[in-house]
């Protein structure tokens, strides 16, 4: 049995005045200031029965959006079988950071490492904030919106092998695919299906701006 969104909100607002409702397609969702996030999550875990941390992730709301990054926590209650989404916006658009909840749920450890790896959101007080999916020393955060799907040319993780094979982590040739029509645009020329990421390919030079 899951609580109605309004109930969750009013119950939480009694304790955390800053909490606001967040539009959601399904489960109850709340916005919380980053400073209150850990206190709120601790409260939810200890007193509201949300004992299961399903997921921690981040969203990049576009290059020129502000606040640009949000951190999303999904909680589940093994008692009431309900979900709750907690979202907090990062204060800085250039060096986003968020408090770590690895001390509350050990499950958060890897999720936070992944979010740091792919989006570059630093989690303060994280026990061991290293990259997890990309290799150590990879210079970019691939899920940021300004990073092209094809990738950016960097040396292979093993320099010795890179030297022997002369291979690099070169941008993938996007020639022709994936075909995606620009969304929402009804202008026929604009809506034409095309490779969405046309930054460059093997034949076209890398633009200087990136």
């Amino acid at each position: 049995m899951s609580l109605a969104p309004a109930e969750v909100l009013s119950a939480l607002q009694g304790k955390f005045a800053q909490v606001t409702a967040r539009p959601s397609g399904d489960h109850p969702a709340v916005n919380v200031p980053m400073a209150d996030a850990v206190a709120l999550l601790r409260h939810l875990r200890d007193e509201r029965g949300f004992d299961f941390l399903v997921d921690v992730t981040g969203i990049d709301w576009d290059v020129d959006a502000s606040p640009r990054f949000s951190v999303v926590w999904h909680l589940f209650s093994t008692r009431d079988h309900g979900y709750l989404r907690v979202v907090a916006a990062c204060a800085s658009d250039t060096e986003p950071s968020a408090p770590s909840v690895a001390a509350l749920w050990p499950a958060a450890d890897w999720h936070e490492r992944e979010t740091y790896d792919l989006l570059g959101i630093r989690f303060e007080n994280h026990p061991d904030l290293r990259r997890i999916l990309m290799w150590e020393g990879y210079p970019y955060h691939p899920l940021r919106k300004d990073f092209p799907l094809a990738g950016i040319d960097v040396p292979l993780p093993d320099l010795e092998v890179g030297e022997v094979t002369r291979a690099t982590a070169a941008p993938a040739p996007m020639v022709g695919g994936p075909f995606v029509a620009s969304t929402g645009e009804m202008n026929l020329t604009e809506a034409e299906p095309r490779a969405k990421d046309e930054s460059w390919d093997e034949r076209k030079e890398k633009p200087d701006t990136l």
Binding site: M134, P142, A150, G151, I152, A167, A172
Partner: peptide, 18 residues
Amino acid sequence: SGGMYRSYATLQGVDRII
């Protein structure tokens, strides 16, 4: 050839290294 994974993380064909 990298197949359907034309992305930043995938080697576009193993013949680039062996």
